[in-house]
């Protein structure tokens, strides 16, 4: 104690940042408060209200029906076979689209990483799908490409006897995924192209001298080098695509039945078409919890990837 009084400076150093008294601390933090309060109002209050609604039976079509039912809504959610179907759709749609987009993006990035005439033009053209508003892209796919009589896909396939296929009603989930893959492949391509261009050329030259052919170089060196870029692409793509709403809404309305509905769309349907506030609130809470669990693992992967574990020698 005596020592502390006699030599205050070194002790402060040892404790890390110099001590600030409470008033000064508040003075420094005060300018951040409005933003914090605003964030709490727009995120946490709706969340708490959602939890509150999820414990009630409340359908807007029947006024006065509002009553407290505890966890009945949650029990209904887990016994709802449609909800399970939609949850599965969401997983297939999100992961399927992301993985296909990464695979296609990798192929395109490898092609773009070579020198050829008109590379700049080709690159720009390949990026354009990413620049289109998702609603417009979905509309484009529904009408211009997949329309059974006027669509380009059937026109191109007509010599092979595939004319008249009702793509959207026969393969609703695949159609939505096709549009999503089309929009997200350019993003993956750009990410992986950046990865490819950050690979040191002397390593590739060393591999050539060491007797590796193109395939061995790709498998032994390029793919390990791209690993963290692929992981980043998968995590970012998943975060975006798990929330897909506009594409589903524009192309299939989740139908036929719930064949192409994902969770955001299904909850929207139950809340704003079925007016079942209690039920949809409970679904929302369940989805948030599941997403939190998945996101925790995904983000942990992301941080591990960029902690520089595999940094170049």
């Amino acid at each position: 104690m005596t020592t502390t009084l006699e030599r205050p400076a070194p002790d402060k150093q040892a404790g890390g940042a110099p001590m600030i008294d409470r008033a000064e601390g508040w003075r420094r933090r005060a300018p951040l408060l409005p933003a914090l309060i605003f964030t709490i109002i727009v995120t946490q209050i709706p969340f708490l209200l959602t939890i509150f609604y999820s414990l009630q039976s409340w359908n807007l079509v029947r006024p006065g029906s509002q009553s407290f039912v505890w966890f009945q809504n949650y029990a209904d959610v887990f016994t709802d076979s449609q909800f399970r179907q939609v949850a599965l759709n969401t997983v297939v749609m999100t992961l399927g689209s992301v993985l296909i987009a990464v695979a296609l993006g990798l192929v395109l990035a490898l092609l773009l990483n070579r020198q050829f005439f008109g590379r700049g033009v080709v690159r720009t053209l390949l990026i354009t799908p990413f620049l289109i508003t998702p609603v417009a892209a979905a509309l484009l796919w529904r009408t211009v490409l997949l329309d059974p009589t006027l669509g380009l896909v059937n026109f191109v396939l007509s010599p092979f006897g595939a004319s008249g296929t009702e793509w959207i009603s026969e393969f609703p989930l695949a159609s939505v995924m096709a549009a999503l893959v089309w929009q997200w492949t350019p993003f993956m391509m750009l990410l992986l192209l950046a990865g490819l261009q950050s690979q040191p050329t002397d390593q590739l030259e060393a591999a050539r001298v060491d007797g590796a052919n193109s395939w061995s170089i790709f498998r032994e060196l390029t793919l390990p080098h791209l690993r963290r870029f692929i992981e980043l692409g998968v995590v970012l793509g998943t975060i975006y695509l798990v929330n897909t709403f506009d594409t589903v809404y524009m192309m299939t309305q989740g139908g036929p039945g719930v064949a192409s509905a994902n969770l955001p769309f299904y909850i929207y349907q139950r809340a704003f078409l079925g007016f079942d506030i209690g039920q949809s609130a409970a679904m929302g809470v369940v989805v948030v919890i599941l997403t939190l669990i998945a996101a925790t693992f995904a983000l942990r992967l992301l941080f591990r990837t960029f902690s520089g574990e595999e940094e170049a020698a």
């Binding site: 040191p200 002397d202 390593q203 030259e205 060393a206 591999a207 032994e220 060196l221 390990p224 080098h225 690993r227 595999e310 940094e311 170049a312 020698a313």
Partner: peptide, 10 residues
């Protein structure tokens, strides 16, 4: 090579 060009993942 000058920068050794070792394969970092190996």
């Amino acid at each position: 090579f000058q920068n050794y060009a070792l394969y970092p993942s190996k």
